[in-house]
Design a binder for these strands. Structure first.
Lengths: 350, 350
DNA sequence: CTGAAAGCGCTTACAG
DNA sequence: CTGAAAGCGCTTACAG
C-alpha cells in the first residue's frame, strides 16, 4: 500500500492547492463543481484518507469535540449501576484528550419524562457534536431521535433499549442471548426434573422491554434445544410490594425438586433473602448486573451467577465510536452488541 | 487543570528555548546540568506531559516504531489458535497506523529451541523497538529476558507463561482462576455426589505449567469452598497415545453417578469422541480455547463450556501497551490479567 | 472561486 | 552547550 498519499499529493495530482483539497474533503463551499469533481476523482483513485492525528492536532484547541451525556441522576452515586458507564466514558476521554474532545454530563429523573425533555432541549441548544443517552421514555426518545436527525447530531443510546422509530445508533447487550445463557446455565444445573421460575421485578406499571426480551430468550432456549421441562413459570411483581411473590414462592416449599430462578434485571439481591426466609433449599439464582448488593451475594454463594452487561465498556465504546464517527465518518462502532459476560464468584474480581 | 501547558510554556518559564526542553525530555546530551535541572524543575512544577499526538505526527515517518512478533509457526494457519493473537495485533496496528508503528512477524518451531533462539537473535540484530512473544523454552527465554533487558528493549510475553527469572512484561490469563471457574461450573452441575476428572493432555514429556496451575485452581476451589466431593482424580496422558486414558475412562462406565471432566488445555475436542464411544452419559465436559473443533462441539452440545483466553485481545493489548510504553513510558498496560471468559453455545458467536 | 501563509505541539539538523 | 528554523499533515483566515 502506498502510505505516502497525503493531501499534498492529492493537490498536486489534481493541479490545485491543498487548501482547495481540504475544502472538498469537508464539503465546504467555495469550490467550483468542476474542480471539486476533479479532486474527488483523485481522492477516489488514490484511496486517500485524511490523517486524523494531524487533523486533530490542528483542531484540538479551536474545534474541541463536545459530547453531551444525558443519564439518570442515579449516575451521580458512586458504585451505583448508572455510574459505571461514566467510568468507561472518562477512560475513553482521557485516552483521546490530546485529540481535543470533552464531555459534559446532565441528569434527568427516572420517573419524570419532563426532566428528560428539558435536559435534552438544553443540550440541543448548546454547541454539541454528539450525544450519549439511554432510552427510557418512548415518546420523548422518538422526539429526540427526530430532533437530532434534523440537526445531524449523532445520538447513541447505551444499555436499555426501547423499541423506537429511527434509532440510529445503539450499544447494548442482546437481551435474548442473555436470557438464553441464563437458561442454559440453569438447565445444566437443574435439568429436566426441576422447576424454573422467571421473576420480573417491575418499577413501573408495565413490563420493561428488556426484561420481556430476556424472558423470551430464556423460554426460547428450551424450545430451540427441544428440552421439555417439568415446570416453567414466570411472575411479574412490583418492587414496591413483594408480598404476592412471597405467597407464590410458598408453593415451591412443598416440592422436593430443585428450583432455578432467573431474575431479569439487576434486583436479584431482593430475591435472595426471600428464598432464604422461605427456606427454599437447592435453589439456583441467576440475575443481572454487578451492583454492590449482587456482588456481595455472589461472594457469599447466595447468588450463583450474574450476567454482566459491561456498562463501563459500553460507555467507553460510545465515546470511541462517536470520535471515530465525527472524525472519519465511520459508523460501525456505534451499532454494537456487547458480549454476554458470565460472572461467577471465582472470576468476579478480575 | 491547566491543559495549556505545552513545551513552549515550559521553555519560557525555564528561560530556555523549546529545543533545549526537548533535549531534557528525551535525556539527549548536550545540555548543561544546571539548565537541565532547572527545566526538570519546571516540568515537575507544571506537571507538563508531552503531547504524544504531536510527537508522533512529527516522527511518524522518520522514526517508525518497529515491533517484532515471534510466534510458533502454527500462527500462519488461518483459524489456528496461534493465529488469533495476530488478528488482535493487526487491529491495534491499524488503529495506530497514523502514529507511525509497524510490526514484523517471525516464526519458530514449537519443538525446536534452536529455531526460537536463532529467530530472536535475528530480531535483536535488527532495528527493533519492542518484542511480543511466548515463553515456551525456559532456558532460551531466560536468555532472551537477559538480552532484551541489556539492550533496553521491552519484551512482552502473551498467553502461556513459564516461570522465568526476570520476566518484566506479560499479558495472560490467570490459570488458577480459570481452573476455579471450571470447578465451580462443574460443581454446580454435578454437585457432591459425582465424579470429577481433570485430564492433562500432554505434548511433551513433562506437564505444561499452565495445565498444572489450572488443575491447582480446580482442586483449590473445593478446599476454599469447603466442599468435599465423592471423587476427584486427574489423569495425565500424551496426545500421541490416548489408550491409557481410554482404559482409565472405562472404570467410570460402571458408575451411575454423573461425571465432570475438565480438560486443562485446548484439546477437549479429543476427549469428547472418547466419552461418546464409551457411552459415558451424563458427562459434562469443560475445556479451553475456541478453536474450530471445540466450537463445533460446543454447538452440538458435546462440550458444555469453553473458557476463552481471548488471544486476540491479548495481542491487541500487547501492541497498545507497547505503544504506550514506548511513547509515554507507562508500563502498567504491559502487566495484565486477562479476564476469564466463560463461553456457552448461546454466547459463542457474539 | 482559489492560493499562499501561518500555525497546532513537537523534533532535529544546522549554525554558532 | 544552546537557539532559530524548518517541517510532520492538516486547517483556515486572509488576500485576491
Amino acid at each position: 500500500m502506498n502510505n505516502t498519499i497525503g493531501i499534498k499529493e492529492v493537490a498536486e495530482l489534481a493541479g490545485v492547492s491543498i487548501g482547495t483539497v481540504d475544502r472538498v474533503l469537508h464539503n465546504r463551499n467555495g469550490v467550483s463543481n468542476k474542480t471539486a469533481s476533479e479532486v474527488r476523482k483523485i481522492i477516489k483513485e488514490t484511496g486517500y484518507k485524511k490523517n486524523t492525528v494531524a487533523s486533530r492536532l490542528k483542531l484540538a484547541k479551536s474545534k474541541v469535540i463536545n459530547i453531551a451525556v444525558l443519564f439518570p441522576e442515579e449516575a451521580k452515586l458512586k458504585s451505583h449501576y448508572w455510574n459505571l458507564p461514566i467510568i468507561g466514558i472518562e477512560k475513553a476521554i482521557t485516552e483521546l484528550k490530546e485529540m481535543g474532545i470533552r464531555y459534559q454530563i446532565s441528569f434527568f429523573k427516572m420517573n419524570e419524562t419532563n426532566s428528560f425533555i428539558s435536559a435534552y432541549n438544553k443540550i440541543l441548544d448548546s454547541n454539541v457534536d454528539g450525544i450519549i443517552s439511554v432510552s427510557f421514555f418512548k415518546d420523548a426518545c422518538n422526539e429526540l431521535n427526530f430532533l437530532t436527525a434534523k440537526k445531524n447530531i449523532p445520538l447513541v443510546y447505551i444499555d436499555t433499549q426501547l423499541e423506537l422509530s429511527n434509532t440510529k445508533y445503539c450499544i447494548h447487550q442482546n437481551a435474548q442471548i442473555g436470557g438464553a445463557v441464563a437458561s442454559r446455565l440453569l438447565y445444566q444445573i437443574i435439568g429436566f426434573h426441576g422447576n424454573y421460575l422467571v421473576i420480573n421485578l417491575m418499577t413501573k406499571s408495565e413490563l420493561n422491554q428488556n426484561s420481556h426480551q430476556r424472558e423470551e430468550g430464556f423460554r426460547r432456549f428450551f424450545k430451540t434445544e427441544n428440552l421439555p421441562v417439568h415446570s416453567l413459570k414466570s411472575f411479574n411483581v412490583s418492587v414496591k410490594d413483594l408480598s404476592p411473590l412471597i405467597n407464590f414462592l410458598k408453593s415451591y416449599q412443598k416440592e422436593s425438586i430443585p428450583l432455578g430462578v432467573f431474575v431479569t434485571n439487576s434486583r436479584a439481591h431482593l430475591i435472595s433473602p426471600l428464598l432464604e426466609k422461605l427456606n427454599l433449599k437447592s435453589t439456583t439464582l441467576i440475575g443481572y448486573d454487578l451492583n454492590k448488593a449482587n456482588r456481595k451475594l455472589l461472594e457469599s454463594n447466595k447468588i450463583q451467577c450474574i450476567i454482566n452487561q459491561k456498562p463501563d465498556f459500553q460507555g467507553y465504546t460510545a465515546i470511541k465510536g462517536l470520535f471515530k464517527y465525527l472524525t472519519e465518518g465511520e459508523e460501525d462502532q456505534l451499532l454494537l452488541d456487547i458480549p454476554v459476560e458470565i460472572v461467577l464468584k471465582e472470576n468476579l474480581n478480575q
